[in-house]
Design a protein around this nucleic acid. Structure first.
Length: 429
RNA sequence: UCCUCGAUAGCUCAACGGUAGAGCAACCGGCUGUUAACCGGUAGGUUGUAGGUUCGAAUCCUACUCGGGGAGCCA
């Protein structure tokens, strides 16, 4: 008998098939049982009538929540079913009978759910988010490969800070100190000089004691870098990538988005080109609205939210003051006080999802900036080499996948956008 | 690091200075179409830890532990 995934049941209406999965729930009266099976691709209700098969009916009393089963049954259309199909159960075997399952169908608190993350991910909502994450990652790769970008993975163990700002996780590299990467960017610049257009996609680590719905200690970042790309090329690439992500998730996950109660209209409203506002103009706007902030100060979360809420699409904040951005960002020739970089803020207050810039290509200027930031020149010696040997203008950006997925899914917290979140006070399980 | 909130049954919560309760889960029974099914019953507790105030503390005070939300920083 053919083994079919729940999500494909509609293609087999009328036939008898085998299903393999876990019992999501069971309801029973004296004469009829409803067993909801989940197999990770969806859920389906299986019906068992006592009069038709008394032996099987009794045996099914043993099907506790999350017991694993292989069952056979006939698929039929059923107007009363939310998915339109239902299974008439013919037989089943229990692979592993589950003990009383901690995560019931009732409400639970964040602490308990986090402590049981390994089981929490089995719930329909969490599964939907993780499926969307998978598609978002796939769409990133599809998009960049389609634009002739080459995947060039950057190292996770690094000898020193990439940007010298954030706190790093220190590890012991045999007798030496080493650090977990907080960005693959500097290595990306090297691979871009070798391969022209490249990207890396992997975990990145921040040891800052951040403790908000937008922060994880370990998160995944898509970082692209392109030789000969200037500021404008960079922004265009970013907005087209993010637009592609939105469209792809809408196309492939309407059911998951519905399950998450996502307001789909807000995603459908995203359109190209994305709005742009310079730091200076954004600042004026914020001051006119009563924010206490001066030129040269970075925007905080409340400011970012205030700006992003004015637009339906993600918005670029461009031309930040050089003093609040990383040392490698190219100054604007028209005004060297500001840099040719931009942050992309997601709508609905989800915060910064991309940070990017054109990079300094002049070796002398780069050396000067390294000194100004009090960074050790010798650890950047190889990075300076990139400017010694055939320097070119180039640009890149980093996209935080969890924040992006959280926005796409409309969920409250980035911890639900990754299978096993690492937060400030929790790394179990 | 700072601000803020919290910890009571397996889970979600109530009891607010005077005998620790409810719903769900578990277990037993009932029910022919349920969608977090429903109905009846049984069992389940050193109220996060340590001290203090009091005739009496889940409740008030102090410290600690663990966690939630936020600030800063960032994706």
């Amino acid at each position: 008998m053919e083994w079919v995934l729940v999500k494909n049941l509609k293609d087999h209406v009328g036939s008898e098939v085998e299903l393999r999965g876990w019992v999501y729930n069971q309801r029973a009266s004296g004469k009829i049982r409803f067993i909801i099976l989940r197999d990770g691709t969806g859920t389906v209700q299986c019906v068992l009538v006592k009069a038709e098969n008394p032996g099987l009916f009794e045996k099914a009393a043993d099907l506790t929540q999350e017991s694993s089963v292989i069952l056979t049954g006939s698929i039929r259309e059923e107007p009363r079913s939310p998915s339109g199909v239902e299974i008439t159960l013919n037989s089943f075997i229990i692979i592993g009978r589950a003990d009383p399952y901690p995560i019931t169908l009732k409400e639970h608190g964040v602490d308990f759910l986090s402590e049981n993350r390994h089981l929490w991910i089995r719930t329909p909502r969490q599964s939907a988010i993780l499926r969307i994450r998978s598609t978002a990652e796939q769409a990133c790769r599809e998009f960049l490969h389609g634009r002739d970008f080459v995947l060039a993975d950057s190292p996770i163990i690094t000898p020193a800070a990439c940007e010298g700002t954030s706190t790093l996780f220190e590890i012991s590299y045999h007798e030496e100190k080493a650090y977990l990467s907080q960005s693959g960017q500097l290595y990306n610049e090297a691979t871009a000089m070798a391969l022209n257009r490249i990207f890396c996609f992997g975990p990145t680590f921040r040891a800052e004691k951040s403790k908000t719905r937008r922060h994880l200690m370990e998160f995944w970042m898509l970082e692209a870098e392109a030789a000969f790309f200037e500021f404008e090329d960079n922004l265009k690439l970013q907005e087209e990538l993010v637009f592609h992500l939105v469209r792809t998730v809408l196309d492939r996950h309407s059911q998951d988005l519905r399950l998450l109660n996502r307001d789909i209209e807000k995603l459908e409203a995203v359109s190209l080109p994305f709005p742009r506002v310079s730091y200076t103009d954004a600042l004026k706007l914020l001051i006119s609205e009563g924010h206490q902030i001066q030129w040269g100060e970075d925007f905080g979360a409340p400011q970012e939210t205030a700006i992003s809420e004015k637009y339906q699409s993600p918005v670029f904040i461009t031309h930040f003051p050089a003093g609040i951005k990383a040392f490698y960002m190219e100054p604007d020739p028209a005004n060297p006080e500001v840099i040719l970089g931009a942050d992309m803020l997601a709508p609905e207050g989800y915060g910064e999802i991309i940070g990017g810039s054109q990079r300094i290509s002049d070796p002398d200027l780069l050396r000067k900036k390294i000194a100004e930031h009090n960074l050790p020149v010798d650890t950047f010696s190889w990075y300076l080499d990139l400017r010694r040997y055939g320097t070119v203008p180039h640009s890149g950006f980093g996209l935080g996948i969890e924040r992006t997925v959280a926005w796409l899914c409309g969920i409250e917290h980035v911890r639900e956008a990754i299978p096993f979140p690492r937060t400030l006070y929790r790394m179990y399980p």
